[in-house]
C-alpha cells in the first residue's frame, strides 16, 4: 500500500513537472510571435548559441569525418568497395552524426551556460525585477533563447556536414588514395534531398529541445548555489539523453 502510494505520488509529481514545462514552452514560443519584437536580443542569443559554437563544431566535425574516413575505408575495402567511401561518410554524417553530435556539443557548451545564467538571474531576483518593470520575464529572457536555438542548430548542422565530408575526403582521398571522382561523384548521385531534409528537421527539433530543457531547468532551479549547480548538471544530462531518444524516434518516423 505504502509503495503504491509513493509510486503514485512520484508519477503525479513527474507528470506535473512535465505539464509545467509544456506550458513554459508554449508561453515562451507563443510570445515570440507577439510584439514587441526584440531583434537585438535575438541576434545576441544567436551569437551566443550559434556563432560562438563554430570552432567547437568545426573540430568535432573534422575529426568525426576523418575517423569515418579511416573506419569506412577499412570496412569497405574488405568487400573491395572503397569507391563507395564518399557515400558512406556523407550518408552517416548528413542523416545521423551531423545533427546529433552538433546538438550534443551545443548542449555542453551553450545549454549548460543557459541554465546557469537563468538560475543566477533567479537567485538575484532579476525575474521579479522584470515583473515589477511590467516586462514578462518569459518573453524577455526565454523566448529569444528558444528562437535562437531553432535558428542556430540547422545552420551549425549544415556547417558540420560540410566540414565532416571534407574531413572524410582528406583522409580517404589524400591519405588512403581513394579515387577523387568516385568519392565525390558517387556521393552526389546517392544523396537525395530526403536525406538532407531529414537531417535539418532533426536539428530543428534538437535546437528547440536544448533551449527548452536548459531554460526550464534554470527557471525552476532551487534558488541556492547548490540548486543552480544541480540544475546545470541535470540540464546537460537530460538534454543529451532526450537528443538521443528523440533522434531514434525521428529516424524511425522518417524512414
Amino acid at each position: 500500500m505504502e509503495i503504491a502510494a509513493s509510486l503514485g505520488r512520484i508519477t503525479l509529481n513527474r507528470l506535473q513537472i512535465l505539464g509545467r514545462s509544456g506550458i513554459f514552452l508554449f508561453m515562451s514560443v507563443f510570445q515570440a510571435f507577439l510584439p514587441p519584437f526584440r531583434i537585438p536580443r535575438l541576434v545576441k542569443e544567436i551569437e551566443f548559441i550559434g556563432s560562438k559554437s563554430f570552432l567547437i563544431v568545426f573540430v568535432t566535425a573534422l575529426f568525426t569525418g576523418m575517423v569515418l574516413g579511416i573506419q569506412g575505408y577499412y570496412s569497405l575495402s574488405q568487400f573491395g568497395a572503397e569507391a563507395a567511401l564518399g557515400v558512406m561518410v556523407a550518408l552517416s554524417i548528413i542523416r545521423e552524426l551531423g545533427p546529433v553530435l552538433c546538438a550534443l556539443m551545443v548542449t555542453g557548451r551553450a545549454g549548460s551556460a543557459i541554465t546557469a545564467e537563468i538560475g543566477i538571474m533567479k537567485i538575484t531576483d532579476q525575474f521579479p525585477a522584470l515583473e515589477m518593470m511590467a516586462i514578462d520575464p518569459l518573453k524577455y529572457v526565454i523566448s529569444p533563447k528558444v528562437v535562437a536555438g531553432i535558428i542556430s542548430l540547422p545552420l551549425l548542422t549544415a556547417f558540420f556536414d560540410l566540414v565532416g565530408i571534407a574531413g572524410g575526403y582528406l583522409v580517404g582521398v589524400k591519405l588512403l588514395g581513394v579515387n577523387e571522382g568516385a568519392y565525390l561523384g558517387k556521393m552526389v548521385k546517392a544523396i537525395t534531398f530526403t536525406d538532407i531534409h531529414g537531417g535539418i528537421l532533426k536539428s530543428l527539433c534538437f535546437g528547440l529541445l536544448i533551449t527548452w530543457i536548459s531554460s526550464f531547468m534554470g527557471f525552476t532551479a532551487e534558488p541556492t548555489t547548490e540548486g543552480v549547480s544541480r540544475a546545470t548538471t541535470n540540464a546537460v544530462v537530460l538534454t543529451s539523453l532526450s537528443i538521443l531518444i528523440v533522434d531514434y524516434i525521428l529516424t524511425s518516423l522518417l524512414l
Binding site: 538575484t124 531576483d125 532579476q126 521579479p128 525585477a129
Partner: peptide
C-alpha cells in the same frame, strides 16, 4: 506606476 528596490538590488548583471 510602481518602483521597487530589491534587497539584493536585482541589477541585470
Amino acid at each position: 506606476k510602481m518602483g521597487m528596490l530589491f534587497q539584493g538590488s536585482a541589477l541585470f548583471n
